[in-house]
Design a protein around this nucleic acid. Structure first.
Lengths: 104, 104
DNA sequence: TCAATTAGTCAAAAAAACATGACCACCAAC
DNA sequence: GTTGGTGGTCATGTTTTTTTGACTAATTGA
């Protein structure tokens, strides 16, 4: 059967889906760090105090599935993995920018 | 003592707080309905299939606390309560607009 | 060969969000 | 005075999200 990820609600509320893709305890911070360049799993754990492997792994996976981040195996000295903002992810900066005027 | 609602994280990630204020199962839809004019408690329950008193009440309260909605007692024939977008709430349309290009 | 760093997974527990059903008070019409 | 609409609260239960801790497996450097 053919299914999608949209609830009936989202059909009439486009923002809802995007909100879901960006929401969560760690995603906004990961996004922000990714703006400064590629991010890495263990580095994130150190940069995000209070975070944990599981949550960071889940956030990275979901952001990859949402086409916000792109996962790359870097064939260099200490072989490692990088997560970089996708084109769609980079375009989302505008969403974040639009939020920056509202610091209550 | 002086406290605020910001975690250490939010200090360095402004979007996080706004994201929190807009996230949740019903807030985006309530916001959207409020764009068309004042919304009312029982009307919302009818307009949001699958919703319930508790969740809608909580959403309205939190959006009021976040200065997105303003609660008004309308002194008219059948005395009732209206929730209207605050100035800040109206300004937030830009945030929603910025999300509308990303329908994956 | 041993230890550290890389990047994870898995099961389970704890915490947060959301839903259910009962109840309340006020007002108006019948 | 009972029914129906207004706008809720409260206690409880379920579901979702997040955390914890144990474990894995490949790579690297000494």
């Amino acid at each position: 059967m053919t299914t999608n990820n949209f609830s009936q609600d989202e059909a009439s509320c486009p923002a809802e889906g995007i909100l879901k893709q960006l929401s969560g305890k760690w995603k906004p911070q990961i996004f922000r760090l990714a703006l400064d360049g590629p991010v890495r799993f263990n580095a994130l754990l150190r940069q995000l105090p209070g975070s944990n492997k599981q949550s960071v792994a889940t956030a990275l996976k979901e952001m990859e599935e949402a086409d916000i981040l792109v996962k790359t195996v870097v064939q260099e000295k200490p072989l490692h993995i990088e997560y970089t903002l996708s084109e769609r992810g980079r375009a989302m900066v505008t969403v974040f920018r639009s939020m920056e005027g509202f610091l209550s």
